[in-house]
């Protein structure tokens, strides 16, 4: 199979099958919710939907999202933005992706999902080619805080960060298609904040993906536990599963700034890696 066909296949698989760690988290959540409750009905529907989409190889959600490719530095000359664009155009033609790219000035659609900066490509030290697909409903729930924030009583410390994260969860309610995942960046400038926060969504939800820094690992666990006690639940209809995971990273900041950036990911946390 040619490289371009293998990328098309990566797109199809990412769009139709959730990663195993996300499925495990959803199944675990279903076991914990009371049978017959709204939460259990919603989680059951989500899992049935995932099984059906995987079986048929069709998009599991009609919002196939904004595509970001993370490509290892060493592949810069083989896996070029042009090649990735051609793969996206092919995948769109075959119905693996919705026509999802709009010119914000004219309102017209780029029918092949290719335009300046789209799909997004980032060369980094992550092995292979990793694709993440994030829908608009969840992206609308992402936000950035600047500490101190007196409305939250949040100062420039981990307690302040905790307050921001719980505030983001309450503001999102079910509108970002809960249960979601929080990717978080503490520090950085505003642009790095959003970029690094989104990158944290690539980390698995099981123990292998937990932060190596014990302070951040404790924060991840605590916010997950506290968010799930808020009662928001799947799709905001109530229940004990509001988040599937929290993944935090920290980046240096300048003395004058202290940003906390939250990338909210929906339950359809689509990501996948291939080795070309």
């Amino acid at each position: 199979m040619s490289l371009i066909e293998r990328i098309v296949e990566l797109i199809r698989e990412t769009s139709s099958s959730l990663p195993e760690d996300v499925l495990r988290a959803l199944r675990g959540a279903l076991r914990r919710e009371r049978a017959g409750s709204s939460a259990s009905v919603v989680l059951g529907t989500i899992l049935d939907n995932c099984a059906l989409a995987a079986k048929r190889g069709v998009p599991l959600c009609q919002d196939t999202g904004m595509l970001v490719f993370f490509v290892h530095e060493s592949l810069r000359r083989r896996v070029t933005p042009v090649l990735l664009g051609r793969a996206v155009a092919l995948a769109t033609e075959r119905g693996y992706l919705r026509r999802n790219t709009i010119d914000p000035v004219s309102g017209k659609s780029f029918d092949d999902n290719c335009a300046e900066g789209v799909p997004a490509v980032r060369y980094c030290d992550r092995p292979g080619v990793t694709l993440i697909m994030k829908g608009g409903g969840s992206e609308n729930m992402s936000r950035q805080y600047s500490l101190p924030d007196s409305s939250l009583g949040a100062g420039r410390d981990l307690e302040g960060v905790r307050r921001c994260l719980l505030d983001a969860v309450v503001r999102a309610q079910g509108y970002g298609c809960a249960p979601g995942v929080l990717g978080v960046c503490i520090g950085g400038d505003r642009a790095a904040g959003y970029e690094v926060a989104k990158e944290q969504l690539l980390r698995p939800l099981d123990a292998a993906g937990a932060s190596e820094d014990p302070r951040l690992r404790a924060l991840e666990r605590r916010v997950l536990r506290e968010a799930n006690s808020l009662g928001i639940g799947p799709m905001g209809l109530g229940g004990g599963t509001t988040l599937l995971g929290v993944r935090v990273a920290a980046r240096p900041r300048v003395p004058a700034s202290f940003f906390v950036t939250v990338a909210y990911m929906c339950w359809a946390a689509r990501r996948r890696t291939m080795m070309p």
């Binding site: 709204s38 009583g153 981990l158 808020l230 905001g236 109530g238």
Partner: peptide, 26 residues
């Protein structure tokens, strides 16, 4: 409306979580 009920409950619980401090938890 469940949406109104859930929003009210979660905001109340958030307010009470603010009274707990991070270092208390540790």
């Amino acid at each position: 409306s469940l949406f109104a009920d859930v929003a009210a409950v979660s905001e109340r619980r958030l307010a009470s979580s603010r009274r707990k401090c991070y270092t208390d938890g540790i």
